[in-house]
Measured scan of single mutants.
Amino acid sequence: MDALKSAGRALIRSPSLAKQSWGGGGRHRKLPENWTDTRETLLEGMLFSLKYLGMTLVEQPKGEELSAAAIKRIVATAKASGKKLQKVTLKVSPRGIILTDNLTNQLIENVSIYRISYCTADKMHDKVFAYIAQSQHNQSLECHAFLCTKRKMAQAVTLTVAQAFKVAFEFWQVSKEEKEKRDKASQEGGDVLGARQDCTPPLKSLVATGNLLDLEETAKAPLSTVSANTTNMDEVPRPQALSGSSVVWELDDGLDEAFSRLAQSRTNPQVLDTGLTAQDMHYAQCLSPVDWDKPDSSGTEQDDLFSF
């Protein structure tokens, strides 16, 4: 819950932080000083300027060897085509990944977070970031790969997607708890209302004896509580940590079903599988986004697919 609360507080303090972009060759504004600060901008989305290598189908939802083989196929196909790589912007948030063309600003792909089953910074092609997700059109699994400016960037994108998945799962947990509370309150309110109706004398007997209905007592009954809980029953509950912020979080049926399955089948359902080692994760978390744009010590960066 700490990640969720800190993310909400950060967004309320400075929503404009989320509009910064990394990996864009110096076009961005001043960047936060450390990885923790940038992680807090996830709610509205972190932007990464990358190059799209392509996509291939895979048979399993996750796995280092599986993704490595898929990336190898994608890279080989991209090299064989001889075409310049498409420059894209990857927007990562707890909602998922939005992929747009840098030149036309046209939407290429919009992947809900619950469809993503794996992401990684490839070991062999260490400047490549990739994720595996279920197609929104059918049940097939797709591996999408992107060329980053350097290994640090690939690791940073991988960690960002993993963190977005974690925050999304926490949102789901909060929403589920809130819905259970509202359902319980609604049920209790309905029981109270039913009890009051059972003990209320029939209207005919009131008229016969000349008694008047006590409207004041009726007004004191917990009807307002019942209506408050039943009027918006169809509205999706939102985490309290975000009250007053500009973010509107809505959970669709697909996300609810997917996270429910994860909660039942996995020990740590909030953790998205990645190909990063503990050492890689520690190294990337210690980086400032400013470091992502620094040239690798191995030599001059080449803006070309064939540089790796």
Rank of each mutant, 00 (worst) to 15 (best):
L4Y: 11
K5R: 01
K5L: 11
K5G: 13
S6W: 10
G8I: 12
A10G: 08
L11C: 09
L11G: 13
I12K: 02
S14P: 14
P15G: 02
P15D: 00
S16R: 14
A18Y: 09
Q20W: 05
Q20Y: 03
Q20R: 15
S21C: 03
S21M: 02
G23K: 13
G23L: 05
G25S: 01
G25Y: 06
G26D: 12
G26K: 06
G26H: 09
G26R: 05
R27N: 06
R27D: 11
H28Y: 15
H28V: 14
L31Y: 05
L31F: 14
P32I: 15
E33K: 12
E33S: 10
N34Y: 02
W35I: 07
T36D: 06
D37I: 03
T38R: 15
T38L: 05
T38F: 12
R39E: 12
E40K: 15
T41F: 12
T41I: 09
L43D: 10
L43T: 05
L43A: 15
E44S: 10
E44G: 11
M46P: 09
M46Y: 08
L47F: 10
S49W: 10
S49P: 06
L50T: 04
K51H: 10
Y52T: 06
Y52L: 11
L53F: 12
G54K: 09
L57T: 00
P61V: 15
K62V: 09
K62C: 07
G63V: 13
G63F: 08
G63N: 05
E64V: 14
E64P: 06
E64F: 14
E65G: 14
E65A: 13
A68S: 10
A70I: 05
I71F: 14
I71S: 10
K72T: 04
R73N: 13
R73G: 15
I74F: 10
V75P: 08
A76W: 09
A76V: 09
T77N: 13
K79N: 15
K79H: 01
A80G: 13
A80R: 10
A80C: 11
A80P: 13
A80L: 13
G82H: 10
G82M: 04
K83C: 04
K84Q: 09
K84I: 03
Q86D: 08
V88W: 11
V88T: 14
K91I: 13
K91P: 14
V92G: 11
V92K: 07
S93W: 13
S93L: 13
I98T: 06
I98K: 06
I98N: 09
L99E: 09
T100W: 13
D101L: 09
D101W: 08
N102T: 11
L103M: 11
T104V: 07
Q106H: 12
Q106I: 03
L107C: 13
L107T: 09
L107V: 10
E109P: 03
V111F: 12
V111H: 13
S112D: 03
I113W: 00
Y114C: 15
Y114T: 06
Y114A: 02
R115P: 15
S117A: 09
Y118K: 08
C119K: 14
C119D: 08
T120G: 06
T120R: 02
A121E: 10
K123S: 13
K123P: 07
M124G: 02
H125G: 14
H125Y: 10
H125P: 06
D126Q: 14
K127I: 03
K127N: 14
K127H: 14
K127G: 15
V128E: 13
V128T: 08
V128R: 12
V128K: 13
A130Q: 08
A130Y: 11
A133Q: 10
Q134E: 11
Q134S: 08
S135I: 08
H137F: 10
H137P: 12
H137D: 09
N138A: 15
N138E: 13
S140G: 14
L141T: 14
L141N: 15
L141E: 05
E142V: 15
C143E: 14
C143A: 09
C143S: 05
H144G: 13
F146T: 14
F146S: 14
F146A: 13
L147Q: 04
T149P: 15
T149W: 00
K150M: 01
R151S: 12
R151H: 06
K152H: 00
M153C: 07
M153Q: 01
M153E: 03
Q155S: 14
V157S: 12
V157G: 05
L159C: 15
A164E: 00
F165R: 01
K166L: 03
A168Y: 01
F169Y: 12
F169K: 01
F169L: 01
E170H: 03
W172I: 01
W172R: 01
Q173S: 15
S175K: 02
K176A: 04
E177L: 12
E177G: 09
E178T: 04
E180S: 14
K181E: 14
R182Y: 12
R182H: 08
R182N: 05
D183V: 00
K184N: 12
S186C: 10
S186F: 04
S186Q: 08
Q187A: 04
E188L: 10
G189C: 05
G189T: 06
G189E: 03
V192N: 11
G194P: 05
G194L: 01
R196S: 13
Q197N: 04
Q197E: 05
D198P: 00
C199E: 11
C199R: 10
T200Q: 07
P201I: 02
P201F: 02
L203N: 02
K204N: 10
K204G: 06
L206K: 07
V207Y: 02
V207W: 05
A208Y: 00
A208H: 01
A208V: 04
T209L: 07
T209P: 06
T209G: 14
G210P: 08
G210N: 02
N211L: 05
N211Y: 07
L212V: 09
L212T: 00
L212M: 10
L212D: 06
D214T: 09
D214G: 11
L215V: 14
L215I: 15
E216Q: 07
E216G: 07
T218K: 08
T218G: 06
T218F: 09
T218H: 01
A219L: 01
K220W: 02
K220Y: 02
A221Q: 06
L223E: 01
L223K: 07
S224L: 07
T225W: 03
V226Q: 03
S227M: 04
S227Q: 07
A228R: 03
A228Y: 06
A228K: 04
A228E: 05
A228D: 05
N229G: 06
M233P: 12
E235F: 04
E235D: 07
E235C: 07
P237R: 10
R238M: 05
R238W: 13
R238T: 01
P239W: 03
Q240V: 07
A241W: 01
A241N: 00
A241P: 03
L242C: 05
L242T: 09
L242I: 00
S243K: 07
S243A: 05
S243L: 03
G244S: 13
S245N: 15
S245L: 02
S246W: 00
V247S: 05
V247Y: 10
V247P: 04
V248E: 04
V248R: 07
W249I: 06
E250T: 15
E250W: 06
L251E: 08
L251A: 00
D253M: 07
G254L: 00
D256V: 14
D256F: 04
D256C: 08
E257W: 14
A258D: 00
A263C: 11
Q264V: 00
Q264R: 00
Q264I: 04
S265A: 00
R266C: 00
P269A: 04
P269C: 02
P269K: 02
P269Y: 01
V271K: 04
V271Y: 12
L272N: 06
D273A: 03
D273M: 07
D273Y: 06
T274K: 00
G275F: 08
G275K: 02
L276P: 08
L276V: 00
T277W: 00
T277L: 00
A278N: 06
A278Y: 08
M281W: 01
H282V: 08
H282Q: 03
Y283D: 04
Y283K: 01
Y283M: 12
Q285V: 02
Q285R: 04
C286A: 07
S288V: 03
P289H: 10
P289T: 07
V290H: 07
V290A: 10
V290I: 15
D291E: 02
D291L: 07
D291Q: 03
D293Q: 06
D293S: 00
K294I: 12
K294T: 09
P295Q: 01
P295Y: 01
D296Y: 13
S298I: 04
S298N: 00
S298T: 12
G299Y: 07
G299R: 05
G299W: 10
G299A: 03
E301M: 13
E301W: 04
Q302N: 01
D303A: 04
D303M: 09
L305S: 08
S307T: 03
S307F: 00
